[in-house]
């Protein structure tokens, strides 16, 4: 066991996967020699050579398109898109190709690839370094979408994603790379070395896709979150004193519906939190599922706390970001309703 940042945990997941399976190849912009702009692939080229870890031209459609070809051949590419905001040129390769290859060829060809990308805001990155496009992937049949909230999960989920025989989108909340950021941007962030989920086992282990984790058990309200918002939700619970049950979904496709419905059946209330814009965000899907499956348990309307339906602004970042105050207000609101 060692304490690791999320960056180190992701790097370690690559290392473990590459050493166990020579079919795993890693590439992307600045990923090879330099080890990635966030340093998540540092040292891999030195250790595994240029054939298995290399820099690519700046062409996202090329990165994902070649990964689909390699995966169909029998390799296991794990590629990086420098920021999720830059994945759009690759979207056609994901939607029309990676996601459907198994289906349209009746299993003759498959696309076991992992596409990693930093996601989310909180770094004053403006509209091109802050987006949370998870719903755009979740909406596509044939893509799995994973979003870790801590180093332990990041390593286990990434290894599981690489070993998965279907295409997986792996979104890394960049504001969590160095610590469990809870939305209090004026306060210093606790480093992962001081957090129990910064404790990362050595060697191989997996965290299964489609299994949520209850980060804090509670009786009064279920809070559904993933990525950075897990820590924001925990802070909001702490600060309001509402006995919230915080569920970290970890992957949104596949989704652990059982954990969600069991919790809401118990609490009777549900708040859904994500950083992405609201309209057709993944919260809409969650709200529909909860409404349908837990209709008779609900004591208050389901509330969503999300980014507003605007591009991600630069100077107004902290008014845009759904921080603990906004989540706390939603908790109070659902507790008052009944």
């Amino acid at each position: 066991m060692a304490r690791m940042t999320m960056i180190e945990a992701i790097r370690d997941a690559h290392d473990v996967s590459m050493s166990r399976d020579e079919k795993v190849v890693v590439f992307g912009q600045d990923v090879g020699y330099f080890g990635g702009v966030f340093r998540c692939t540092k040292g891999l080229q030195q250790k595994y050579g240029m054939q298995r870890c290399f820099d690519t031209p700046i062409n996202e459609s090329g990165i994902v398109g070649t990964a689909v070809g390699m995966a169909a051949y029998g390799l296991r590419p794990c590629v990086e898109i420098q920021f999720a905001d830059y994945m759009y040129p690759a979207y056609d390769q994901l939607v029309s190709e990676a996601a459907r290859l198994r289906y349209r060829s009746n299993g003759d060809f498959i696309a076991p690839l992992t596409v990693r990308m930093p996601t989310g805001g909180g770094i004053f990155g403006g509209q091109t370094h802050s987006q949370s496009p998870e719903a755009l992937f979740a909406h596509v049949s044939g893509l799995k979408t994973v979003i870790p909230s801590n180093p332990y999960d990041a390593k286990g989920l990434l290894i599981a994603s690489i070993e998965d025989n279907d295409p997986v989108i792996f979104l890394e909340p960049k504001r969590l790379y160095n610590g469990p950021f809870d939305g209090h941007h004026d306060a210093a962030v606790t480093p992962w070395s001081k957090h129990e989920l910064g404790e990362v086992p050595e060697g191989h282990y997996t965290v299964p896709l489609g299994k949520a984790a209850i980060r804090r058990p509670g009786a009064d309200v279920t809070i559904l979150a993933y990525g950075t918002m897990v820590h924001v939700a925990l802070a909001a619970v702490e600060e309001t004193g509402v006995d919230g049950e915080v569920i970290d979904l970890r992957s949104i496709v596949p989704l652990d519906l059982d954990t969600i419905t069991e919790s809401v059946a118990k609490t009777g209330r549900c708040v859904i939190v994500h950083e992405a814009t609201r309209t057709c965000g993944f919260g809409a899907e969650l709200a529909a599922l909860v409404a349908h499956h837990c209709f008779y348990s609900l004591e208050a309307a389901i509330v969503r706390v999300t980014g507003y339906d605007t591009p991600y602004p630069h100077a107004q970042e902290w008014d845009y970001f759904p921080g603990p105050k906004r989540v706390g207000a939603a908790l109070t609101q659902v507790m008052e309703a009944s």
Binding site: Q127, H129, P311, P313, H314, A315, Q316
Partner: peptide, 12 residues
Amino acid sequence: SNSADPLEGRQM
């Protein structure tokens, strides 16, 4: 991104 920013603080 100040009060006189012609782009109203929206852009990096």
